[in-house]
């Protein structure tokens, strides 16, 4: 009994420790004081209102949404393709290819950002949302592929063959059997890719040019002055990320526990 109380206390302390920095932002975004300081100056929605009225913030938000949705769609499609390629086929150069897909998140983002800048600056995509999307896809696809590949591992050797056996062409089997089977992991990959892109600062800062995403706007705001609007944006970004990651986890688990493949 005491053991359980101690354990729960420990878990609560751990959660608080992890969440504390974020909580600080959320709490002060509703603080009436102009400069975050204790004691709390009373509840206000002013900073949120101001943030949402700021044209640059709104345009950054628009960019962020476009970039993260674009990234999510592309990373999910490419992630599925790579995962299916890995699952179904043996071919020359498969290992290096899979390594290339897996490696970007392991590279320090500064280096990744510089590399992407160097690559993109020679193309007309440089400084456009499309350019940011391309770079974000390169990062997100490795997460998305990993999630989908796990689910494909549960497909079993017979399900796809059974579809062929029952009159489905390979393409029809992919569409009517493999993709529905992977659906939970596809949704999870979509949400996670969107979250990865929505939160990403370094690469967006390197290749975005004048097209700021929300994290980039936050840094630029910070460099100017301490602005309470930052806390408000922070809260917003936090909320969106939390929702995306929670959804991703939920669907990934749905896939993982899997209804029986009977």
């Amino acid at each position: 009994m005491t053991g359980r109380i101690l354990r729960n206390l420990y878990l609560a302390a751990l959660a608080l420790f992890i969440a504390m920095p974020m909580l600080v932002i959320v709490v002060f975004s509703f603080d009436a004081n102009r400069f975050p300081a204790l004691p709390w100056g009373g509840f206000t929605l002013n900073w949120h209102r101001e943030a949402l009225a700021d044209a640059m913030i709104l345009s950054a938000m628009k960019n962020s949404v476009i970039v993260s949705l674009g990234t999510a769609v592309l990373a999910t499609v490419l992630g599925f393709s790579a995962a299916y390629l890995d699952y179904r086929y043996m071919f020359f150069g498969k290992r290096p290819l899979m390594l290339a897909v897996a490696v970007p998140p392991a590279v320090p983002v500064t280096i990744l950002g510089m590399a992407m800048l160097a690559a993109l600056s020679r193309t007309p995509m440089f400084g456009t949302p499309a350019g940011i999307i391309v770079c974000h896809v390169a990062i997100a696809v490795s997460f998305s592929m990993a999630l989908i590949r796990l689910r494909l591992g549960e497909l079993g050797p017979d399900l796809e063959a059974a579809a062929w056996n029952l009159g489905a062409s390979p393409l029809a089997a992919l569409w009517h059997v493999v993709i529905p089977f992977c659906k939970p992991s596809l949704i999870a990959a979509f949400c996670l890719s969107a979250a990865v892109s929505f939160d990403e600062f370094m690469v967006a800062w390197f290749v975005g040019g004048v097209n700021e995403t929300l994290p980039v706007r936050v840094l630029n705001l910070l460099q100017g002055q301490v602005n309470p609007k930052i806390n408000a944006i922070g809260t917003l970004v936090l909320a969106i990320s939390l929702i995306l990651v929670t959804l991703a986890q939920r669907f990934a688990r749905l896939g993982g526990a899997g209804k029986e493949t009977a």
Binding site: D158, A163, W164, S169, P180, A262
Partner: peptide, 17 residues
């Protein structure tokens, strides 16, 4: 898919979704 030779599998291979 063009053979018309349906099979009953040991694993059943029913579509769970």
């Amino acid at each position: 898919e063009e053979r018309g030779t349906p099979m009953v599998w040991q694993s059943l291979a029913l579509f769970p979704f």
